[in-house]
């Protein structure tokens, strides 16, 4: 009896679910859905990303890049696309791996050594944890280039050169730009608590900026949380006339928070993406300071190729800086196009 009842019920529920699915599908079909604006079609129309074909006759060398990136980080995505572009041109097999925890990142470097790569690109976000394994690679005769972070220790660990931007210097550049714009009180928006690079950026601003700088920590994985925290800050302290975000995705959110809070604060940001480019263009974002991630990826691969092919090293082993580059409204036009295809 019970089973009969249950089966009748489940049949009824299947029928009910089916009806709901059909109704939703019908609704979707009724909208008959095409958009005459935007979307993939528009992208294809403007797509002109460079194509990849080897232009050299050197053997297929293997180069590994190991970074401290977390999952799904826009920034490292651009570094990778730069590296891949160089790899395509230089006939290089490009291997990428990442882990935001220093211990596991070191293991990934070890794995690359075990694979007998012909070149190694690493980031040294937490230098002391990477020291041994990088030295090991150098001892095995693998040419190492460090990128992005670890400028101070790069050559001491035996790397050929370092390509990147000094976070402190970038912060200082922002501080100077804020002075030039006559700002008085800035909020430095940190979206990852305990990230050394982020602290250095805010410290850099504090060093050169004549006004006051306050830190605000938010949880970068919760956008509404970021927005409401910035809103709260702007509502509670009316003297704040600038918000500096440390990552591009948070700039647009800060703009929204500012509008909702009815504040006149200027939003400035580190790094770049297509929404920041659009923001620069329409004036909702004051300036962006970019460290050119594409260049960090492209140059590191290309330099290793040059080193293997011709024993060349740009800068004679001194750090090669890719930033800070201050971008304003006047740069926005072409940036918009390049950010949309994911190379800036």
């Amino acid at each position: 009896m019970a089973t009969v009842q249950r089966s009748r019920r489940s049949r009824a529920s299947v029928r009910a679910t089916g009806a709901v699915v059909a109704a939703v599908l019908a609704a979707v079909a009724a909208l008959a859905g095409c958009s005459s604006t935007g979307g993939k079609r528009a992208e294809e129309a403007r797509d002109q990303a460079a194509s990849g074909k080897a232009n050299v006759t050197t053997p297929r060398w293997k180069i590994a890049m190991v970074t401290h990136s977390g999952d799904g980080d826009t920034y490292w995505d651009i570094v990778q696309s730069g590296a891949k572009q160089a790899a395509a041109k230089d006939n290089i097999e490009f291997l990428y791996s990442h882990d935001k925890e220093a211990g596991r990142q070191a293991q990934l470097v070890q794995a690359a050594i075990d694979k007998k790569v012909d070149g190694l690109i690493v980031t040294l976000a937490k230098p002391s944890a990477m020291k041994n394994v990088v030295r090991k690679a150098v001892k095995k005769g693998i040419p190492v280039v460090t990128i992005n972070s670890g400028q101070e220790v790069s050559s001491a660990y035996g790397a050929l050169t370092h390509i990147g931007q000094d976070e402190q210097t970038a912060g200082e550049a922002v501080g100077k730009e804020l002075n030039r714009r006559g700002r008085e009180k800035a909020v430095c928006l940190l979206h990852e608590q305990g990230n050394v690079g982020h602290e250095q950026r805010c410290d850099g601003i504090r060093k050169t900026f004549d006004g006051k700088v306050e830190d605000l920590y938010v949880d970068g994985t919760n956008m509404p949380g970021v927005q409401s925290s910035v809103e709260a800050k702007l509502q509670s302290d009316k003297k704040v006339d600038t918000v500096v975000t440390l990552g591009a995705p948070f700039a647009a959110t800060a703009v929204q928070a500012k509008q909702d809070a009815g504040s006149k604060a200027e939003i400035d940001t580190f790094d770049l993406n297509s929404k920041v480019a659009t923001g620069l263009k329409d004036g909702s974002i004051g300036f962006a300071v970019d460290q050119q991630p594409y260049l960090q990826g492209y140059q590191s691969v290309d330099l290793l190729w040059l080193y293997r092919y011709n024993a060349d090293m740009l800068g004679g082993g001194k750090p090669v800086l890719t930033g800070p580059q201050i971008l304003t409204k006047k740069d926005a036009g072409k940036l918009e196009e390049f950010t949309k295809r994911g190379t800036r």
Binding site: V24, L31, S35, K40
Partner: peptide, 18 residues
């Protein structure tokens, strides 16, 4: 879904519901 299919965003919203 909306972007890749160049569809009305409501279509994407419906597909997402399913």
């Amino acid at each position: 879904f909306s972007y890749q299919m160049t569809a009305n965003t409501w279509v994407g919203v419906g597909v997402s519901l399913l």
